[in-house]
Design a protein around this nucleic acid. Structure first.
Lengths: 142, 142
DNA sequence: TTTTTTGCAAACCATTTGCAATTAG
DNA sequence: CTAATTGCAAATGGTTTGCAAAAAA
């Protein structure tokens, strides 16, 4: 499903995801694209995000009970989702050691996996005034 | 949010999930409950599943691009989702070693996590006639 | 009796889709 | 040109909700 045409809209969606460090939702991506191209429709953003994800140029991060988020980091990595402020943090390096080979030996063809931790982020855990956003960390804090 | 009343509907939903070994969707649970209690509404099934999940008497399994599934196994375990037949398999023992402590030391309060592998199950990988359902395995096959 | 839970239907929200108009190649 | 892509709006699909009636405690 490789793109046949490089439209302005596709380029803008890709660019917005790439500059973002906050795992934006589709709505947020739409808003940010509209800042530059006011007539872009939400449907087009959905279509282009799907296309980009299928080409592995962006990655989809699914979160329990919340709209999907998108990530410019396309290589396998895990996430932490704060159930209080809903920030999504990339966890690098991974806190997991997986035995993919064992699954393969058992006959599974593993294409991908998703590992997501849920709980409270350091900010929300410590802070008393709750509900902050965009801690802007790519790696876990000190 | 502990149940205040033991209704027939709550009992039936719990029982259906407990007898199921196929990680049924809400629709499927609804159908199975209706076999015994034809007037139970879908809304009631949703409400009772939420209640049971919040009490950790059943567990919710979220899957990419598919409706939620429910599991009678409530202790932490991982899943394999077949992208071909959409079967959901419990993976026991876990194919992952997680370093929860490292996250805690970094200030995160980890409440739960989800680890799901996606790909083709042994049946679909080998078989030529595709799209089978309910391999009925709790553990990975030989 | 009192309060929770139900059934029903409507509402909701995220996402997808049909189609005529636009645009990249 | 002409096929892929867009904008728009309507449709979908899963899930939630308001409310009067039913049923636990």
């Amino acid at each position: 499903m490789m793109s046949k045409r490089q439209t302005q809209q596709l380029l803008a969606v890709f660019d917005v995801v790439n500059r973002a460090h906050d795992h934006p939702s589709v709505e947020q991506i739409h808003q940010r694209v509209r800042e530059r191209m006011p007539r872009v429709s939400l449907g087009t953003v959905y279509r282009n995000l799907q296309k980009l994800a299928s080409e592995r140029r962006v990655s989809l991060v699914q979160i329990r009970n919340r709209p999907a988020r998108y990530d410019a980091v396309v290589d396998a990595h895990d996430h932490f989702v704060c159930e209080h402020c809903h920030v999504v943090l990339d966890l690098a390096p991974s806190k997991a050691r997986l035995d993919l080979q064992q699954l393969e030996h058992q006959g599974f063809a593993v294409r991908s996996h998703a590992l997501t931790f849920y709980g409270q982020c350091p900010n929300c855990r410590g802070g008393r005034k709750g509900r902050q956003r965009n801690s802007q960390m790519t790696t876990a804090p000190a």
